[in-house]
């Protein structure tokens, strides 16, 4: 009876349940960071990694597509971590950002977005070709998926690709996003990702909003506004370039 009431209360107040759950998860992660890694691995990096593991478990357990939030008790995590709150918090981080750093990197930031889209697209396309795909539409869709998991399906739908190819492009984009979240804090020292300038370029090259948001949170939250600023233009640029210029390029080559 008590369990039944508890379940009812937690499910009826889903978003509040999510706040409590994430609070506990972050607390546990900082504890692990301090005790097990002696502060070497940042607490937020551990929290994000634990979140991804739980998402993987949630997907396996429920067969749904929204990770842990498909577990009925934790549906609120889906609201809390959805695009609405994510974008709201990202915009809030701009408060106190250095306008001069943004202005100074304006041109190279814009440049990095175009390079980022083309680079990921070309590499995704090459991988597709090396796995035996020769149809220009399939190669373009998979290349677009390597940009972000939104560019892939948008491009595939525009060109009339098959659902199996579109699913592959989404998987490639998801892999990218997950890897950027986990990998960024580890490669940050080696690639000089420690100032607003390189964060702007990082956002433009990576482009995946979730990946950049998670990667910078785990590396240095002060860099978030700069990376997010350029990343937010990436998906639009990808949706613009992939089904048009890049598709024509692929068709000319294959």
């Amino acid at each position: 009876m008590i369990l039944e009431s508890l379940r009812r209360v937690l499910e009826a107040n889903a978003l509040i349940t999510a706040f409590m759950f994430v609070g506990a998860l972050v607390w546990l992660s900082y504890l692990i960071s301090a005790k097990l890694t002696r502060g070497h691995v940042h607490g937020s990096a551990i929290a994000i990694a634990l979140g991804l593991v739980l998402a993987w478990y949630g997907g396996l357990a429920t067969g749904g597509s929204r990770g842990l939030s498909d577990v009925p008790l934790l549906a609120g995590v889906g609201v809390m971590g959805g695009a609405m709150f994510r974008d709201f918090a990202i915009v809030a981080t701009a408060f106190g950002a250095d306008i001069r750093a943004l202005k100074r990197a304006g041109l190279v930031g814009a440049f990095s977005i175009v390079i980022g889209v083309v680079l990921s697209f070309v590499i995704g396309g090459i991988v597709a070709v090396s796995f035996g795909y020769t149809d220009p539409i399939a190669v373009t869709t998979i290349g677009a998926g390597a940009a972000t998991y939104i560019v892939g399906p948008v491009t595939g739908t525009a060109l009339g690709a098959g659902t199996d190819v579109i699913a592959l492009s989404v998987a490639a984009g998801l892999t990218k996003s997950v890897l950027v979240m986990i990998g960024t804090p580890f490669v940050a020292p080696r690639i000089g990702l420690n100032n607003p300038h390189s964060a702007l370029i990082y956002g433009g090259l990576m482009g995946t909003t979730s990946g950049v948001a998670g990667g910078l949170a785990a590396t240095d939250p002060k860099l978030v506004p700069y990376g997010a600023m350029t990343a937010t233009f990436y998906t639009g640029m990808g949706c613009l370039l992939a089904p048009s210029v890049l598709y024509l390029g692929v068709r000319a080559i294959l």
Partner: peptide, 22 residues
């Protein structure tokens, strides 16, 4: 609230699909 929201965002990613894409 940015970091907690990002942690929630991580927890709702379709990781299973990413890993099952081959």
């Amino acid at each position: 609230m940015y970091i907690p929201i990002v942690v929630a965002m991580a927890a709702r990613q379709n990781v299973a699909a990413a890993l099952s894409g081959g």
